[in-house]
Design a protein around this nucleic acid. Sequence first.
RNA 1: CGGGGUGUAGUAUACCGGUAGUACGCCUGCUUUGGGAGCAGGUAGACCGAGUUCAAUUCUCGGCACCCCGACCA
Length: 425
Amino acid sequence: MRQSQLFGKTSREDPKDAVAANARFLERGGFVFKNSAGVYSFLPLGWRVLQKIARIIREEMNAIGGQELFMPALVEKKYMEPTGRWGVDISLEVLGAGEKEASFVLGWTHEEVLTAIAKHLVNSYKDLPFAAYQIQTKFRNEPRAKSGLLRGREFIMKDLYSFHADEKDFESYYSKVREAYNRVFSRVEVKAVYTVAAGGVFTKKNTHEFQVVSPVGEDTIYVCEKCGYAENKEISSLKAGSACPACGSGVEEKSAIEVGNIFPLGTKYTEALGLQYADEKGHKNYVVMGSYGIGLSRLMATIVEVHHDENGIIWPESVAPFQVHLIELGIRNHELGNIVKNTAEDLYNRLLAKGVDVLYDDRADKTVGEKFADADLIGIPWRVVVSEKMLEKNGFELKKRNRANPEILSAAALVEAVENKKDLL
RNA sequence: CGGGGUGUAGUAUACCGGUAGUACGCCUGCUUUGGGAGCAGGUAGACCGAGUUCAAUUCUCGGCACCCCGACCA
């Protein structure tokens, strides 16, 4: 991608209404655009990051047998009423044609919708278990959207639902999901603490959350540094310094961002909606359910909260919008400058040919300082500079975003290094 | 939803009851070129509505929007 053509520009000033690091850097870097409070557009740069995250989540969900599908955002009243979730506070209701009262809600979760589908498809124990998920926009009329992408009224979420014949089968799947979630969070390089929590509007049972410790987090958790056991303050009888229920060591109080959760639902929804199956003896039983969420847009914001410095974002390689930021410092209308320009074009094409994702800063009207400052802000892991100075040394400069000192490499060595993602620095 | 605050150019800001200023951006030209360049010229602005007033961007009221604290929450 040529940066001169990119739909998205950096800005030098922080937006006046943004305080959280994720909002400041994502808006300034041209990753997202705030359309309303808690309502964001993803610009091409931000959308690439989101797609990288989505791909990792898909791989891990598929690996535990999750089947991807896609459900409607318009959810009719008849689905939510039987479970008592029609008209809850966070609902964004929609009027049908000619109606005076809303008959649809913009979907904020999909247990009911998928259970209705399952009623059509599940008759026998032979149809169980199964797990299905989607990646979709969710709508929740938050009384107070805040902290950039961390709490929006509209956000992108992966929601997985599993259906089982009995609790035992459910529990074994629940722990599989837990492991899959750990892999997701470790691949995007956030440290998520598995935390015991409350079920809110989803279930009366205890649930589990994946919490990333961060000062901007809205949740308070008690976490044991020694064994890693953690409880959410909302259900906990612990205090800072209390003995850890798991190992007896002291727990600490931390602010944390909830990046994922897994809910045991039992038969709450299947009873309310009448989802039963026939067992081996022909007896009818209610299906046991679980639901499992990861907020993708929130996770993207969390990654920024965890991985940045004063100059901008430092993307983990797994989710960076591009692998390489190629910066050309040729002087316009100048003989040597043209050589620099041509050399950079050539290198750009070589990297593309090798299948490397490159953002090529070919902008002719930007100064050196501006290009470097933009590169720091956008936070692509590898930076390659082509300039007169480098050509004199017969090489290219390669620098990692999180390192201070660059390396000078020949073109061939550089292409090889980037291609093999060799950490030469 | 309770409390507090803020709405001025594309962005960030200043001043003011009477002609709205600065910086960055953007456009033209020349110069410059390894950490947000220089000169010259140009472009562009008071959230909406009502009231007070000779006169409102400024004061008052209402609405709307956005931010922060709380309650709530993936």
